[in-house]
Design a protein around this nucleic acid. Structure first.
Lengths: 333, 333
DNA sequence: TTGTAGGCGTTATCAG
DNA sequence: CTGATAACGCCTACAA
């Protein structure tokens, strides 16, 4: 492997010049630039990224913390991130997170200054210790679809989504509308639900009661959705419509309902969240979320934070949009 | 950020000793090790990964080349890779590939010695130029679900899968069995189909004719599956069963069939490939592929190649397994 | 505009 | 076992 020295020698210039050419510095005469470029070509020289990172203290790498529960919505988000990152000549380091321990470890390591120039955490609440370190080392981090005081974040307005879903069901004539929510912090069941505020607001402004047990708070999985519906149907006055916090939950709800002999949407209506491929295939009414755009924007915010370390934390909220399909209908008379 | 020098000074030892402690070298007395560890703790020292990589010529990073068309099967594979990689204290660098150009660029860059210690390419045929460079620089690379002479690869035995699918349909009584295949090289439609050999073998050993137009070769998408079925149904003697090279294709086939008023499986049977979540939800009969294991094994092969550069290329084949569900039935009398 | 020298934080190779 | 010291390949003043 040729080094910058070999190139310099071959081109009959100093390594400074080669370095400048490599970094598109304007401080090189056209003639020398040509000679250097030719030498690079001739030798098949490729600058060593690690050495560059070491010397410049810039890895050109962004870390991505990805929980596995994202399922089918991960790919669109990843695409969006790539869209932004590719232009900036950055590369992605991915850490997958399966449980709480993973998450903490990932956040722990991710701040290893030098490993990357910044991090993007998807659907993940950072532990307090990590947040402190980020601040202390002014390590740029952007949260996606979660927010945290003092940190940049890009996400959907969950409460607005919940309001839209409830309003839609109420508009169809439903009065007993339940919520299958998820904790803000996936790994802390005790944390508040992401949609509960919006749900309550919408219920109250539609003059509807939030009955006991109508707020289920479970994880994003299909199984959890099924279980939640089971509990809902055991209520004295079971709901006629269910607003879920993920498409997977909604699918679980639909399956559990059918398993009990309820027809969807004739006997019960269901609204999912995200508009994943599943929702499309299965015809689940849902709230579409601009996943690819979200990914792109989050990456852009992070990249600008890297470029201008003094930047204040930014917060971007995007609206979701209701997509009526086949799982919602007026309640039975 | 404290450096190794700070630690050495704080512990009253040389940096060599600190380095040895960091790398679990046995050549340190228990006493000194304790002192060093204490100093590390006290200073909150964290070794700089880039400096380490630079000095040791080991990045502890593995690159992953991921085509976007993988869809829902990417996550299980990624999990498997993580399973293996996590133990070895490696990290993943991900490059997504959307089209042929992306692929070539990804393979081009991925060999930038120093960026990573090795690469894992999923469902991707490497361009000849890249293969040459890998050989020249003895850069470790493992192909997943694709094979290439001289390179390690881990994958499913596609021909065996096709044989199993055809045999299953034939066993149900089908005689007009068509194949919706995919090119070995996704970005080269002219390359042979991954399943065609197995398909032909199975047809011939079941004494069935491969009629004109019965071998469709398209991309992995649902749309492509629909289109292929359209062509199949326009044939003078349309098939009564279709073996597909992906679940997405199979779903497309089902949708197109229903769109034409054909019932599945009453009028036409369909077998998918991979056993993705989609296939489970939608009840598509398919060939299950051990995706997570595949990912783990591929990563393991790569890690061992990194550890022992002299190792010969390895090839691992795993069988798929037929999962009967709701899209196959005997043909109409 | 260009070349030179110093430094980035570790690892690894030596003597001791 | 331990401590200097020389790489590692590149960037970046600084001097020319």
């Amino acid at each position: 492997m040729p080094t910058i020295d070999d190139v310099a020698r071959a081109a009959g210039v100093g390594i400074g010049t080669v370095s400048r050419v490599l970094n598109d510095s304007p401080l090189v005469s056209a003639a020398l630039r040509q000679r250097v470029l030719a030498a690079i070509e001739r030798l098949g020289y490729r600058p060593n990224p690690v050495a560059r990172a070491f010397a410049s203290r810039r890895t050109h790498i962004i870390e991505l913390l990805v929980p596995l529960f994202l399922g089918p919505i991960f790919l669109p988000v990843l695409q969006g991130i790539e869209d932004a990152v590719a232009e900036a000549d950055y590369t992605l380091l991915v850490r997958t997170v399966e449980d709480r321990e993973d998450r903490d470890r990932a956040f722990e390591r991710c701040c290893a200054r030098g490993r990357s120039d910044g991090a993007l955490a998807l659907w993940l609440v950072p532990p307090a210790a990590a947040v402190e370190r980020f601040a202390a080392e002014s390590f740029p981090i952007v949260l996606l679809n979660v927010s945290h005081p003092g940190l940049s974040s890009v996400g959907v307005d969950h409460d607005a989504s919940a309001r839209a879903a409830v309003k839609y069901c109420a508009g169809l004539g439903h009065e007993r509308i339940a919520l299958v929510d998820r904790p803000v912090d996936t790994f802390d069941p005790a944390s508040p639900g992401i949609c509960e505020i919006g749900y309550r607001e919408a219920m109250s402004s539609a003059n509807l009661d939030v009955r006991d047990g109508y707020e289920q708070k479970v994880d994003l999985s299909q199984t959890a959705g099924s279980a939640a519906l089971g509990r809902l149907l055991n209520l004295a006055e079971p709901p006629t419509a269910v607003v879920a916090a993920s498409d997977a939950q909604a699918i679980g709800v639909v399956q559990a309902a059918r398993g009990r002999g309820w027809r969807v949407p004739a006997d019960i209506s269901v609204v999912g969240y995200s508009d994943s491929d599943y929702a499309q295939f299965l015809g689940i009414s849902t709230i579409a979320v601009p996943l690819r755009e979200l990914g792109r924007e989050a990456a852009e915010v992070l990249l600008s934070a890297i470029a201008q370390p003094a930047l204040m934390p930014q917060t971007v909220f995007r609206p979701g949009q209701l997509v009526p399909r086949k799982t919602c209908a007026p309640p039975r008379a």
